[in-house]
Design a protein around this nucleic acid. Structure first.
Lengths: 190, 190
DNA sequence: GCCAGCATGTAAGGAGTTACATGATTAT
DNA sequence: ATAATCATGTAACTCCTTACATGCTGGC
């Protein structure tokens, strides 16, 4: 019996689940949909947000573990809206998990760099298009992150979350510099 | 019949498969084991290398698609060593795939940042330990990448691959700057 | 003697995606 | 009108990891 409960809890304690729970720890009561949108604009710039189907599954699993509670809000014609919020057990679990699991190494999947890497004799114009799109996305990410750290910066209780936003911005500024280096190389041509 | 062949080929055309094939495109005839080690120190710094079980599976799938050929080298007592090399069809596929699939957005999983983000009231000493470990790993990555661009830099035919290494280095330098920012914040304490 | 690295592979399961499904509202 | 966004959910599948399994070689 106790064994089974432990199993349920352990299943919820993956980095992705903890990241979502960490967003809920800001205190809001949100739907899976809202949680995903919010997560994309904050955590999503340094920890990939899964597809919505995965988010809903994680929320159900977090609830089964007792880390969140949900409340059904009936809607007309549509499926019910389900609002989730973090529990005390959830906050507790967050702290314990965070301190006792040493972080895994950085995982990066840079699809745009992969195109440049594979391009032994691809049309430079196609490549330049890919790089310019990537630069746009990076600039958008930087804008989000700068808003984030401005919002969080004032509040001393969220100094660590503000530091994360600034850290992420440093990474994306590095990415931007790299993109521009690559674009310059393409301009220099053959 | 033709339909089935297309299916086999399509199955091999995932970004991960193409990344591995891209490493093989350097021309070496290598075992799955060697490929994985090499990939980790180069591509691995900007595109996560999967577990060895996955690498072996990808190589078999690439071979089924005709993008690689393998040669068994019998070993005494051990299982045979299987050496893979890229085919002309493989090089062709690489170019076509690379140019026609627009790259997906950057996917980042920064586990160390996640710990800082979750830490509302975690012991700063534990956190500092995590950050210092991460700094070590980042410095090691930078060393690999600087070696890479030095090696590739001379060869004009590999300008693009050298640019990728420099680009990746920019990202990791950003990460390093962010790590130091976060460490400074922890020192300033409460 | 023991552990790490070399070298491959299987088995089981978790993490994640895409596509399908529904239906309202809001903007172009 | 048509598309996008809101809002949730299921089904099917792929990707990827961890653990198990084997056995040799080289360093401490």
């Amino acid at each position: 019996m106790i064994d089974h409960m432990d199993d349920v809890k352990r299943a919820a304690e993956t980095p992705t689940a903890m990241a979502l729970l960490g967003v809920l720890a800001f205190g809001a009561e949100v739907s899976g949909y809202d949680l995903r949108q919010w997560t994309r604009r904050t955590v999503g710039h340094w920890y990939t947000t899964p597809a919505h189907s995965q988010v809903y599954r994680e929320l159900r699993s977090l609830e089964a573990a007792g880390y969140t509670t949900s409340r059904d809000v009936p809607q007309m014609g549509k499926p019910d809206k389900v609002l989730y919020s973090i529990t005390d057990a959830g906050r507790e679990a967050l702290g314990v998990w965070s301190a006792k699991h040493p972080p895994k190494p950085l995982a990066l999947k840079h699809h745009t760099m992969l195109r440049l890497f594979l391009a032994h004799d691809t049309d430079p114009a196609v490549l330049r298009g890919f790089l310019e799109d990537h630069r746009e996305q990076t600039l958008a990410a930087l804008e989000d992150l700068e808003n984030e750290s401005a919002t969080l910066g004032a509040d001393r209780s969220q100094r660590r979350q503000a530091a994360v936003a600034e850290w992420a911005a440093e990474i994306h500024r590095g990415d931007l510099a790299g993109t521009e280096l690559a674009l310059k190389m393409l301009d220099e041509g053959d």
